[in-house]
Computed example of a mutant assay.
Amino acid sequence: MLFVTIYTTQFLVTASMGVIFAYLADLQDRYGLSHLELGMVAAAGFVAGLLAQLLLSPLVDRGHHRLVAWISVTAAVFGAFGFVFAEETWSLVTSRALAGLSFGLFGLVARKALIGRDISGSGAKVGGLLSCAVAGFISGPAIGAALSGISFEAPFLLTGTLMLLLGPVAAVLISKSPIAAASVDYSDLGNLLRRPRVQAAICVHVGIWGLIGIFDATVDRYLTDVGLSSGELAVGLLIIGIPLMALPPYTGALAERLGGGRVGVPALLLFVPAVLLYGWIGGLASFIAVGLAEAVTESYGVMGAQVLVLEATGAEQAAMGTGVLEAVGLLVAAGAAFGGPPLYGQLGPRWLFGGWAVACLILAVIAMLRLKAVKIPPKVITQSH
């Protein structure tokens, strides 16, 4: 019951984020938003998730997961319904921020509840959560396309209503879940950031989440300019999302068995050419081909980074460790989402994605150098170093 409810709620939380993803170009045209205003809307969700994770992750590790779970599901409901009534830039930004707040916090408490008191097997559990998150995100545009004929507001009414029904159930179950609590405070965040494994994981996560920010803020505009319809975009997203829906439980288990660094860093290196090729998309077929390659490497990279952090934190500080990882990723994604549309307008897709490919290559090298500082081989996840 716990696993099914958490996974389903995670699907809905990210579906709410995914609906607006496919509507960014429509929002710009509907409300006459500038590229800068569009970047503000796209970035707001990442900024809200970042701040929430940094501020509240220690509370989860201290045992206050009930409070955080309720904040998350409440924000999801108001974020979805907010787009039904939003008309001005500030209200669009606020609604997007509430959706991002829910996205950041629900993943935090969900991982803590799934891991429980024993970190063993967490790679597959956290991988399953990622699979549901991706399924929700890529289903959002399909939901939007299917209901757009009814009205612009219909997809948001649907996701908000479903979250209103299921969210409280998830919050109650999470509240009752046994967790490994620890006496941590904000000073422990600095200690975590000084650990080589955490630094290597952050490098991998930054590379991946930077692309997510750019992708989130520009691809709808980019593919609309190329000539794809909203329906074609939704189909493309569904197809390229298949690896990220299917692989994370297995890539997480592999990272747990081999060590997070041995999976995450090579994945980031293989991620580079896919990022570069995103700038050369000419239609639906090339979008799907490049997207599939990127999604496979992303599934290995994200789970390698997650396991690297769990190797360093153990179950007791899992929320804070993964929260720091996600927060840094969200910070980069927010910057990329904010700067992506203006850079796309000025430089075009080839320079935009090509530049980030170079950044990912540099990050992979830094991650390898940091892992050399780890004296104990990163082999067994059940140990905390």
Rank of each mutant, 00 (worst) to 15 (best):
S72I: 02
V73G: 05
V73K: 01
V73L: 04
V73E: 08
T74Y: 09
T74L: 14
A75Y: 00
A75Q: 00
A76E: 09
A76Y: 13
V77K: 00
F78S: 02
G79C: 14
A80V: 13
A80I: 11
F81T: 11
F81L: 12
G82T: 10
G82S: 14
G82I: 11
G82R: 10
F83T: 08
V84N: 03
F85S: 06
F85M: 05
F85Q: 02
F85T: 09
A86K: 07
E87P: 04
E87A: 13
E87Y: 11
E88H: 09
E88V: 09
E88I: 01
E88Q: 11
T89K: 08
S91T: 15
S91F: 07
S91M: 10
V93W: 04
V93S: 04
V93E: 06
V93L: 06
T94L: 15
S95G: 15
S95R: 03
R96M: 07
R96V: 01
A97Q: 12
A99C: 03
A99G: 07
A99L: 14
A99I: 07
A99N: 08
G100N: 01
G100Y: 07
G100P: 03
L101I: 09
L101M: 12
L101Q: 07
L101W: 10
S102L: 06
F103D: 13
F103I: 01
G104F: 08
L105P: 06
F106K: 11
F106A: 14
F106T: 12
G107F: 14
L108S: 12
L108E: 08
L108Q: 13
R111S: 14
L114A: 12
L114E: 11
G116P: 01
G116S: 08
R117F: 00
D118T: 06
S120H: 08
S120I: 04
G121D: 05
G121C: 01
S122G: 07
S122Y: 05
G123S: 12
G123K: 13
A124Q: 13
A124R: 15
A124K: 15
K125S: 14
K125P: 11
G127P: 11
G127M: 14
G128H: 07
L129M: 15
L130D: 15
L130Y: 15
S131A: 12
S131D: 01
S131G: 11
A133T: 13
V134S: 03
A135W: 01
I138T: 13
S139G: 12
S139F: 15
G140V: 01
A142N: 02
A142T: 04
A142L: 07
A142Y: 03
I143K: 00
G144H: 10
G144D: 10
G144L: 09
A145T: 15
A146G: 02
L147W: 04
L147I: 04
L147M: 06
G149F: 03
G149N: 05
G149L: 01
G149Y: 02
I150S: 07
I150E: 05
S151C: 06
E153C: 11
E153D: 15
E153G: 10
A154H: 02
P155Y: 05
P155Q: 03
F156N: 13
L157M: 04
L157P: 00
T159F: 10
G160S: 02
